[in-house]
């Protein structure tokens, strides 16, 4: 029995090392000087810690990293709550407001789940482009606000919402909108937080759509900026890693702080997806 547990720990540590290694490399490389990182032998840790990489990353006019971070922050902080709110509104209406259109609207929404998102980026680009959305913030944000899947999750949640609570609200004179705004929405905080955080992560890390739509450096997100750095002819390695480290810090912090919500969101989206 004892030995079995020891074996489990040995195994789990052996697996944990490669999972943590890339984080170590990001930190080590970001703190090295160009000369040391470019040398031919292996160094476990920088001889002298250098912040030149960070200075170079933010001082590069060709790739405006600070502005790209700002764009990503803006896009993710607008998209996450807004997309979750829109899904919650529709989910509530479909679950709780008995009108004849409910069923066709429901099918209209979930039918879009059949189509894989990334594969149809060209048709979406055609529409957004014709509306003048290339190189605009709305072009980056708006097409990603509509998640049929989140509607489905919210609808399921509101179907289980206690009827007594709603009846009490109705006695107090609340209409459907009041019931949603005053009772249902404030009581769906857990689901809201889970899906909102996942949406934030998704938007922060998105690459293909920002690459397609934000072609001008002014509209680059942090992922596009990093990709540009990576694909340059002469790469400034410490600056490359310093930029990447800055780009993952907000999400790693979010993961450590809000893991409970993230796990819950993953279970919701994963199992039913």
């Amino acid at each position: 029995m004892r030995r079995r547990h020891l074996g489990s720990y040995v195994a789990v540590i052996v697996f944990a090392v490669p999972f943590l290694l890339p984080f170590y490399l990001l930190i080590r490389n970001a703190l090295m000087s160009k000369r040391e990182l470019g040398s031919l032998d292996w160094h476990w840790w920088p001889e002298t810690i250098s912040f030149q990489g960070f200075a170079d990353a933010f001082g590069n006019d060709a790739v405006p990293l600070a502005h790209a971070l700002w764009n990503s922050a803006l896009i993710a902080t607008i998209s996450a709550p807004l997309s979750t709110l829109l899904a919650s509104m529709a989910g509530y209406a479909l679950a709780r407001i008995p009108v004849a259109a409910s069923k066709p609207v429901f099918f209209f929404i979930i039918a879009t789940m059949m189509v894989p998102g990334a594969a149809t980026f060209i048709p979406t680009f055609v529409v957004v482009g014709s509306l003048g959305g290339v190189n605009t913030l709305w072009g980056l944000i708006v097409p990603g606000l509509f998640s049929a899947f989140a509607v489905l999750l919210f609808r399921g949640f509101y179907l289980r919402f206690p009827r007594e609570l709603e009846d009490a609200g109705r006695v107090d004179g609340l209409g459907h909108l009041g019931l949603y705004g005053r009772l249902a929405l404030p009581n769906s905080g857990a689901l809201f937080a889970s899906l909102g955080i996942l949406s934030f992560i998704e938007h922060w890390n998105a690459f293909l759509w920002p690459l397609v739509i934000g072609q001008d450096p002014e509209f680059w997100t942090v992922q596009v900026a990093l990709s540009t750095n990576l694909n340059q002819q002469a790469v400034n390695l410490p600056a490359l890693f310093a930029g990447a480290l800055v780009a993952i810090l907000p999400l790693v912090a979010l993961f450590l702080i809000a893991q409970r919500w993230i796990v819950r969101g993953v279970l919701l989206t994963g199992i039913k997806g």
Partner: peptide, 16 residues
């Protein structure tokens, strides 16, 4: 430990 790489984007992963 095993879950945290999910916070990292494909771009950063590719870069490392």
């Amino acid at each position: 430990t095993f879950f945290i790489p999910a916070a990292v984007s494909y771009v950063v992963g590719a870069l490392v």
